[in-house]
Design a protein around this nucleic acid. Structure first.
Length: 426
RNA sequence: GGAGAGAUGGCAGAGUGGUCGAAUGCACCGGUCUUGAAAACCGGCAAGGAUGCAAGUCCUUCCAGGGUUCGAAUCCCUGUCUCUCCGCCA
């Protein structure tokens, strides 16, 4: 959500920001809606003042027993009320139009974001980790999972349809091990608080983080008017919606493991089978709430938390800065982490860390009160995957596979799997 | 699912039709005292919006949405949520 006053004072700057996202200028339209609203608003307030004044007068006259005068004034107020109602209706209509427009405009782009049109223009910041050397042709995770008989798509298809999977035995165990390893690391080493959150939320919640009103097609909506969350970011960021937080409590750092549900409407035909792109997947999420001047550092810190995991799992990965044409709606600056998948011969995204600046906090009216100055302002919100479980399983299968189809278990996960060192079919 | 109670400022908690945006306490901020701190005392302290260079002025807000009234935190209706008791249940 953008500050309407900023748009009013800096229309060219605002439109220039949109241009970076390859969007048309919109400040003129916004300001015209805003002016319509203000005009009606001031008219409404004028009549409200008249009403309030007369009402006070009635109160005094009643005490003086000047009943005739009171009757006259009462009639006058009734007329004024008609005007108030009319202007009130117009004002709220105008406000609704303005608000819907504002809610549909993406966040500003951070100055460090590379300018570009699409995915192609993203900038690789670093590549770390060693290449894995195979003396055989590495299989992809589907072949591996199915030959191990731990990944079953007939069953998944039967109970839920496409873009779902059924994991069993050691793959189910490694899923659970990963969740525990990730949560332990983030809580014990990275100072995040572990939270368990609902996976069904109200539309207001999704509006706060930016999924609604624009992206309902990507979401699952239930018959009770609740929505399945596409990421735990939605819950964690909204925990402090509509409230004022004391500045000395910052930064707030939350982590949660949840299932995430996505329609993948725009991805039909892509990755239809396997753990890469599913309607339901597990993810450990990181969310930070910080002072505005600290959010750049916090994003770096969050990336370090993610990188630590990727290093411990001994993956080859790259850090990518998303360009202005590819960056998400709510984000001002995003770094993706992509892990090398030998079975597919490419890098695949396993984490995305974003600084959403004050875009989400404005939408959800989450504010900070400075203890010293008593000033009230919007904090910055950040979120990052730490990490997507399904895709990490893919990475483990493909990177740790042996020629016989068995898969070694990464060292850091072995204690989470009862000391087991290898996954093999039995 | 049945019966009852409730929702007020950062928090706690008064307030049942007319200067109530709202007593009081805590927290917080400023000051006095102190070598410093604590305590004590004095003062300040809700949010959002409009307008204005500013001081200020005005509007809105006591869970949400309707209604009654000249006037609603206060009365009525609906919804949401919370608590207590009973039933059921993982």
């Amino acid at each position: 959500m953008h500050d309407i006053k900023f748009i009013k004072n800096n229309p060219e700057l605002f439109d220039a920001g949109l241009k970076k996202r390859n969007l048309e200028p919109i400040s003129r339209e916004i300001l015209s809606l805003y002016n319509d609203y203000l005009k009606v608003l001031s008219q409404k307030e004028e009549f409200q003042k008249k009403r309030n004044d007369l009402t006070k007068e009635i109160s005094i006259l009643s005490k003086e027993q000047s009943l005739d005068k009171v009757e006259v004034l009462k009639k006058e107020v009734l007329k004024i009320k008609e005007s108030i109602n009319l202007f009130e209706k117009n004002a709220s209509e105008n406000y609704g139009k303005l608000n819907l427009k504002l809610l549909s405009i993406p966040n500003n782009i951070h100055e460090n974001v590379p300018i570009g049109k699409s995915e192609e223009d993203n900038v690789v910041l670093s590549i770390k980790g060693d290449d894995r050397v195979f003396n055989f042709k590495p299989k992809n995770h589907l072949e591996l999972g199915e030959s191990l008989k731990m990944l079953n798509y007939d069953q998944a298809q039967k109970i839920s349809g496409s873009r779902f999977s059924v994991l069993s035995n050691d793959l189910a165990l490694i899923h659970r091990a990963l969740v525990n390893y990730l949560l332990d690391t983030h809580t014990q080493e990275n100072n995040y608080s572990e939270i368990i959150v609902p996976e069904l939320v109200k539309s207001k919640t999704l509006e706060g983080t930016g999924q609604l009103p624009k992206f309902s097609d990507d979401l699952f909506h239930t018959s009770k008017d609740l929505w399945l969350i596409p990421t735990a970011e939605v819950c964690l960021t909204n925990l402090n919606r509509d409230s004022i937080i004391n500045s000395d409590l910052l930064p707030l750092r939350y982590t949660a493991y949840t299932n995430c549900f996505r329609q993948e409407a725009g991805a039909s035909g892509r990755d239809t089978k396997g753990l890469i792109r599913e309607h339901q997947f597990g993810k450990v999420e990181l969310v930070s709430i910080t002072l505005p001047e600290k959010s750049d550092n916090e994003l770096e810190r969050m990336c370090e938390c993610v990188e630590k995991i990727l290093k411990n799992l001994d993956f080859k990965y790259k850090k990518v800065s998303l360009c202005s044409g590819d960056i998400g709606f709510s984000s001002s600056l995003t770094f993706d982490f992509e892990v090398w998948m030998p079975g597919q011969n490419k890098f695949v995204e396993v984490s995305s860390c974003s600084n959403c600046s004050d875009f989400q906090s404005r939408r959800m009216k989450m504010r900070i009160k400075d203890q010293k100055s008593n000033e009230i302002f919007f904090p910055h919100t950040l979120n990052g995957s730490g990490l997507a479980i399904g895709r990490i399983i893919v990475a483990i299968l493909e990177n740790y596979q042996n020629s016989d189809g068995s898969v070694n278990i990464p060292k850091v996960l072995q204690t989470y799997m009862g000391g087991k060192k290898k996954i093999e079919s039995n």
